[in-house]
C-alpha cells in the first residue's frame, strides 16, 4: 500500500498519522468504526468523523462508557478505534479496558494521543507517564509506540490486521519524520538504526531521533553505540535485545515515560534471564511532570540530544 501521506524530512505528529491512517482504514474496511470522547479534533479522529459520520460515535466526556461501547461493538463484528488522550484512555478507564476489552480479547484498538510530557503546557494532570506500564501488564493487549508520523501511519494500518486489543501510544508534539514508505512496521520487531559494539541504546517513541543523533555525535568521541528503535513494546523483540546485550554488554533505554514499568522495565524483563547486563534507564524519574513548552521539558528531563549524550557518557565512565 503506498498511500503514505507523510514525507521523510518533513514535520508531523504521530497523532496526525493516526487520524490519516484511521481515515484510510475507514475507506478500505466497512467494519471499522471510530469513537471519541469529545477530543476528536485533538486525536485527529475527526478526519474519519467527517467522511463517515454514520460510523463515528462521539461518546461525550465519558471514557469508561466509550471503552464498554467499543467492547459491545467489537462483540458484534465491528473493529472499533476508540480515541482520547492517553491519560484518559489508559488511566481513567483502565479497569474498563482490563475487564471489558482485554479479558475477553475483543478486537478494539485504542488510539491514545497526547502521551508523555510533550503535552507540554497543560502540565502534570494531562501528562500520562504510566500508560505503557498499565497497558503492557494486561494479557491479550499489544502495545505500540511509534517514533514518527510515518512509522505511526504504518503501525495504525498494521493494527487493523492484528486480532485483539491494541494500544497505540501517540504524541501531540510534531517531530521530523525519519521513515519513508519503504519502512515496514512489524509487531514484535525492533529496528536497528545504527550498529555499534560499546553499548546499545534502545529507545521508543518521540525520543528515538534524538537518541540516534546523540549516538552519531558520540561516535566522533569514540563511543560506538548501537541504536535500536523499539516501536513494539508488547510483544517486545526479545531476540534482538538478547543479541544486543550479549554483544555490547551495556544497554541504555530511553522513553518519554516513567522509568518504572515502561520500556526500561520491559527491556530488563526481556534480558534478565538470558543475558543479564548493566542497564541504565532514561525517562521521567519518580516525579510528576509540569507545565512548559514540550522541547524545554525534554531538555529538562534529559531526553534531548545533549541530555542523552551526557547520560550515555556518564554511564560509560561509571
Amino acid at each position: 500500500m503506498s498511500n503514505m501521506p507523510f514525507e521523510i524530512g518533513k514535520k508531523a505528529a504521530t497523532r496526525d498519522a493516526y487520524g490519516k491512517a484511521l481515515l484510510e482504514l475507514g475507506r478500505l474496511h466497512p467494519e471499522v468504526v471510530a469513537l471519541d470522547a469529545d477530543l476528536s479534533g485533538s486525536t485527529r479522529s475527526e478526519y474519519f468523523a467527517k467522511e463517515f459520520p454514520d460510523r463515528f460515535f462521539d461518546c461525550g466526556i465519558a471514557e469508561a462508557n466509550m471503552a464498554g461501547i467499543s467492547a459491545g461493538l467489537a462483540s458484534c463484528g465491528k473493529i472499533p478505534f476508540m480515541s482520547s488522550f492517553a491519560m484518559f484512555t489508559s488511566g481513567r478507564n483502565y479497569e474498563q479496558i482490563r475487564n471489558s476489552i482485554a479479558y475477553p480479547a475483543l478486537n478494539v484498538k485504542i488510539g491514545a494521543s497526547h502521551a508523555g510530557i510533550t503535552v507540554g503546557e497543560d502540565g502534570a494532570t494531562h501528562q500520562c507517564l504510566e500508560d505503557i506500564s498499565l497497558m503492557r501488564t494486561l494479557p491479550n493487549m499489544k502495545v505500540i509506540c511509534p517514533s514518527d508520523a510515518a512509522e505511526a501511519y504504518k503501525a495504525v494500518i498494521a493494527a487493523y490486521e492484528i486480532e485483539g486489543p491494541v494500544y497505540l501510544r501517540l504524541s501531540r508534539f510534531s517531530t521530523v519524520i525519519a521513515h519513508d514508505d519503504s519502512y515496514e512496521f512489524r509487531l514484535g520487531k525492533g529496528e536497528v538504526l545504527k550498529d555499534g559494539g560499546d553499548l546499545t541504546i534502545v529507545a521508543t517513541g518521540l525520543p528515538v531521533p534524538a537518541s540516534l543523533e546523540a549516538a552519531n555525535e558520540l561516535e566522533k568521541e569514540g563511543i560506538h553505540a548501537r541504536v535500536i528503535n523499539m516501536p513494539s513494546i508488547k510483544p517486545i523483540d526479545k531476540e534482538l535485545l538478547i543479541k544486543a546485550a550479549l554483544e555490547t554488554k551495556r544497554i541504555v533505554t530511553i522513553e518519554e515515560h516513567w522509568i518504572t514499568g515502561g520500556l526500561g522495565s520491559a527491556v530488563l524483563e526481556a534480558i534478565s534471564e538470558d543475558a543479564p547486563v548493566w542497564v541504565k534507564r532514561l525517562g521521567i524519574p519518580d516525579v510528576f511532570g509540569e507545565s512548559g513548552p514540550a522541547a524545554e521539558l525534554l531538555t529538562k528531563f534529559g531526553l534531548d540530544k545533549e541530555g542523552i549524550k551526557k547520560s550515555v557518557k556518564d554511564f560509560m565512565n561509571s
Binding site: 471503552a67 461501547i69 467499543s70 467489537a74 458484534c76 479497569e95 474498563q96 471489558s100 475477553p104
Partner: peptide, 29 residues
C-alpha cells in the same frame, strides 16, 4: 465469560460495565 461459556454474549462482573457493552451491541445492530 464469553470466551468460555456457550451462550454468553459478553464477559461481565465488574459492576457498571456490562450496560455499556449492551449499548455498543445496540449501536452495532
Amino acid at each position: 465469560d464469553m470466551k468460555m461459556v456457550p451462550g454468553v454474549d459478553m464477559s461481565s462482573g465488574s459492576l457498571g460495565q456490562g450496560v455499556s457493552a449492551a449499548v455498543g451491541m445496540a449501536l452495532a445492530g
